[in-house]
Design a binder for these strands. Structure first.
Lengths: 211, 211
DNA sequence: AATAAATTTGACTCAAGAGTTAAATTTATA
DNA sequence: TATAAATTTAACTCTTGAGTCAAATTTATT
């Protein structure tokens, strides 16, 4: 439906609404990195602003308050995860799906500048409820994949919830220690983590000897 | 060297220094649980005090300031981990040692009321340095066990640091979601987690088919 | 009973940081 | 050039919570 006469992309940088939205996104992402590195309460709005080369007043041109910023950080991460969940509904069996998904999670967290924050208690009550609800939904989707894998034999029996909590712990912790400029390259971590995740819960035909 | 005439234990409750120390420990532990549940900055000194049935002023009879409380929480966890590291230097091979150790970690965290906090950035610079140093030492001890396991063949090749970061992530995350009164019993989690940790990095003779 | 320790009461100081505002200035758009 | 959007400056208000303090009271110890 895109007309060839009227090129949309070339006008993009002149679309102010679009620019506003992009800058807002950048603000959230930068704030997320700050929160991840120093913690929500150890990061002031002034900090966030000056890390962006901005002023506190300018920051408030893009966001309502600090609570909204934290909330949007969570949303950003969950949006990304939802997309990856959508993308990875394919796969020979539960395990294959899970491998792709988990690898994508790691790649997303190490490459996109999106932070998977765990500080839910610093949110206002309303937003905390929303975030926990959404986290629960994502959690259940992952558990569903695991259960599917247990049905098709690609994933070992055992409490599916604990299976998931274990490797999602690795993911949450990754976000805390991972450093862009550090020793490990994102892709290497992804490969390693997928393998360790997989082996940890691989189905019976792969681990009869060990149980 | 303990004289049989002078019984030490029976006088214990009348030893004021000892009572003071015990109460102080209880304060730290209670604070740790609060920090774990709501976060350091979302827990006021008044909160901690009233959760103990005390008054803020009484709290300051036992601790110097809030920074000290957070610092001692970390110390408490690391003291416990050090003891478990000492206890588990035995074992047929690296993996067996690691299994015992990891299981003990889980049991300790689910049973003792000791919290493994991750908020290091809310500490004063001096204490943050101390905590990170100590965490590094413990990390290296665990990595050493893993490397030993890789030598004796009980643990799979691959970056030992990533091996450790993966399952220690599960441990840190456990502390965030575990709830005393919740669905899972500590011992069940321990058994499950040990298994999943083990399978994730089991040595070649156990997982040739999967690599 | 005398003394020391443990704790309460309640009022207080102080600092940090969120959030606001208005006016001036710069930058982009048409 | 005129207009609207983006940003700065700088000063300001308000709230929260850490930490202090002194005097009174309760509890344990000898």
């Amino acid at each position: 439906m895109i007309s060839l006469v009227m090129d949309i992309n070339i006008k993009e940088p002149f679309n102010r609404d679009r620019q506003f939205a992009l800058k807002r996104q950048a603000v959230i992402r930068a704030a997320g990195l700050d929160f991840c590195k120093r913690g929500f309460h150890n990061t002031s709005m002034t900090n966030i602003a000056s890390n962006l080369g901005l002023t506190k007043a300018a920051l408030y041109y893009y966001v309502k308050n600090k609570d909204e910023v934290l909330f949007e950080c969570h949303q950003q991460a969950y949006d990304a995860m939802d997309i990856l969940l959508e993308k990875n509904i394919i796969g020979r069996n539960g395990m294959e799906q899970l491998e792709n998904l988990f690898g994508d999670f790691v790649r997303m967290l190490t490459a996109s500048g999106i932070s998977l924050l765990t500080d839910v208690n610093s949110l206002s009550d309303v937003n905390k409820t929303k975030v926990l609800k959404r986290r629960g939904i994502i959690e259940r989707k992952i558990i569903k994949i695991v259960k599917q894998g247990q049905s098709d034999g690609s994933i070992a029996d055992g409490n599916s919830r604990l299976h998931v909590f274990f490797f999602m712990g690795a993911l949450n912790w990754l976000n805390a220690w991972y450093d862009n400029s550090g020793y490990f390259k994102g892709e290497d971590i992804a490969k390693h983590f997928v393998k360790q995740m997989k082996m940890g819960i691989a189905g019976g035909h792969l681990n009869q000897a060990v149980t």
